[in-house]
Design a protein around this nucleic acid. Sequence first.
DNA 1: TTGTGTTTTATTGCCTCC
DNA 2: GGAGGCAATAAAACACAA
Length: 324
Amino acid sequence: MAGGRVNGGRNSSVLSALLQNQRSSEPLDSLFLSGSSNSSSASFLGSRSMLSFEDVRGGSGSNRSLFYQYEHEDNGEDDLGEYLHQPGKKRRLTADQVQFLEKSFDVENKLEPERKVLLAKDLGLQPRQVAIWFQNRRARWKTKHLEKDYEVLQANYNNLKANCESLSKENDKLKAEVLILSDKLQLKEKERENSELSDTNKLSQELPQKPIADSASEGEVSKVSAVASKQEDHSSGRSDIFDSDSPHYTDGVHSSLLEPGDSSYVFEPEQSDLSQDEEDNFSKSLLPPYIFPKLEDVDYSDTPANSCNFGFPMEDHAFWSWSY
DNA sequence: TTGTGTTTTATTGCCTCC
DNA sequence: GGAGGCAATAAAACACAA
């Protein structure tokens, strides 16, 4: 059996027969019961609460460890003894030894020196082997734990992404609504200007018949000049409120609407041409959706519009696809 | 039976703590 | 400085398909 498989595998040997025999004994759960048989607590408090491996397993009152039993089994299998003492060969722990160690690990995954010696003694192993087993077991536990954490994080990420996408859609819908309402507002304003203009024309037609001083008070004169200057502003195309060529118009969205701090902010009360009632209604109906964060407060420099990257550059998403 | 991928045992080197 | 933990890695043992 040059470098052959001695323990376990398909061509099971004497050892597996032994193991089968051993497995017919009490379940290992009972290994950690302290004293009383009806106690359900499997607390492992070092040497005090630890039932020895052979105490439960053997049933023969023997103090010999499992390993000792393997070495000195009555059937006198010499090749097994040889195998167990092969220098430089790795020896796999038996299923029972592993189960015992697992139980011990479940209770406490750190190994105090005292417990290590006791476990080693009970299992017929070197304390160093027990230490190494715990070391490797902790590494495996950590890997599994990381995998679970990763799954949880990925699920959270997927939820957030879905939320973000739905919010983005809703945002688009609201933007479209804003545009429609803006157009309506513009239309209304134009209608109002036209009616004012026709009033002015009527007035100017009447004026030449009477001397100005006679026919119009000072207040009327100032009103006329005010209207005229306003008309001039609009006719010269200086209405930058909804001018899509103005620097405040970006991406089909009137950024002037979004920046109340801007001097051209269309809803600033001082500059409004609407009557108080109109203004109130207007504010009630339109203002709430316009409470957007100031653009300068959010850094979207690396973020494409309407993306759901949460401000992270795309390459950072490699975090979500890491592997172990 | 064999090649190959996975799991388990063990080593090494570095780090931290007492 | 020694003991113990951890990450990385080697290598034996094992599982399994072809």
